[in-house]
Design a protein around this nucleic acid. Structure first.
Lengths: 193, 193
DNA sequence: CGTCTATTTGAATGTACTCAAAAGCGGTGG
DNA sequence: CCACCGCTTTTGAGTACATTCAAATAGACG
């Protein structure tokens, strides 16, 4: 069950089989059907997840009831609302399966405990967080200066394995434009070729 | 010289005076005049900095020669181009002092060495990175859904101690709008009151 | 086959931009 | 101390990009 998690961790750090086993034993499996929520706005995020199978969206709803998608998650990605998980405060985000999915969960308590028992995990997370920060910073800069049609094409190019599982509505909510506009971008691209 | 660095670190982790001393000894002081660069696009970022005094902007230039500002840095903030520093690749970012400034620098080599000798520092960075990620995620969501005038007022409210040191041109480059538009927002606000 | 959702298209609108010019402000040197 | 220079801010007019709202079409799923 935890094989892909172990493989994932070994790509980042050196760790003994014994310690890795101890860490992975703290996880439990949860299966979600399409449209089921892992976390709803207002709840406290008590688990962090590692996706074994499926696809999720992490999003926020605003006053007008439409969604902004912060990011998606597929196989081998981690999932949580970090703000809610770290500070144990009510979440402003929703996490919802957009396919039937399977995810390994670790509780806040177990994670804190294991941070202290296994410094390697502290290192793992430090390394992973660095990569997240680099990606988030790049996204902010791209959002600032790139026109929407370019950001759309970048998304298709950079995340083809995610993009083909999504509707235009979802991609639009991620890029911060309307679905109608995505449709017009697609037409423009087709006409060029 | 390293007093404010020590104070800053103690706010995040428990660490012995001895170890803290060892860590802080790895830093050296650098003074920069207004407009001087700490890092230029194309250079490899070989140091991470902790600001003692002054103000910096971290920005990217595009084809049209105007700037997008990723973030600012003032007293007690850390500075680096993480992508360039971690991977030791040429930087796409510039870091420039916008006031006469003083900054403590630690080299990549010293930092890596101390990560292994002092697990507390690994923890410090993991904690700090978590906070960065939460802030970056919030900024992405705000950029997606909030109109520019609201983001301008949020910035003034959330970072008054930075905002009052900046020109409208700099704030515009951070928010991703034109300086002219900032001016019109200000007029609109004044007229309301 | 029918229903529900996603996508496309059109027309009108609005938000923010570009370009150009004027006004304001601060520092420096005569 | 004042005058000038350079940079910032303001203002106006025209424009472009993306949105809203509405309706038609296409696709997916039970």
């Amino acid at each position: 069950m935890t094989e892909s998690l172990k493989k994932h961790i070994r790509e980042y750090i050196d760790i003994s089989e014994e310690k890795l086993e101890k860490y992975c034993n703290a996880f439990s499996l949860r299966k979600l059907r399409k449209k089921e929520f892992l976390l709803k706005e207002g709840e406290i995020c008590r688990h962090e997840g590692f996706i074994l199978k499926g696809c999720f969206k992490v999003f926020r709803t605003n006053d007008h009831a439409d969604e902004q998608i912060l990011h998606f998650g597929i196989e081998d990605w981690w999932l949580s609302d970090m703000d809610s998980f770290i500070n144990q405060i009510p979440s402003k985000l929703n996490i919802q399966a957009i396919e039937d999915s399977e995810i390994l969960l670790i509780s806040k308590e177990d994670k804190e405990k294991l941070y202290h028992e296994l410094p390697e995990i502290e290192r793992l997370m430090r390394l992973k967080f660095q990569l997240s920060i680099i990606a988030l910073q790049r996204r902010i800069i791209d959002n600032l200066n790139k026109p929407s049609d370019e950001r759309y094409q970048d998304f298709l190019r950079d995340y083809p394995q995610i993009a083909h599982r999504l509707t235009n509505i979802q991609i639009a909510a991620y890029l911060g434009v309307t679905p109608e506009f995505i449709s017009r971008i697609r037409r423009k691209i087709v006409n060029k070729n």
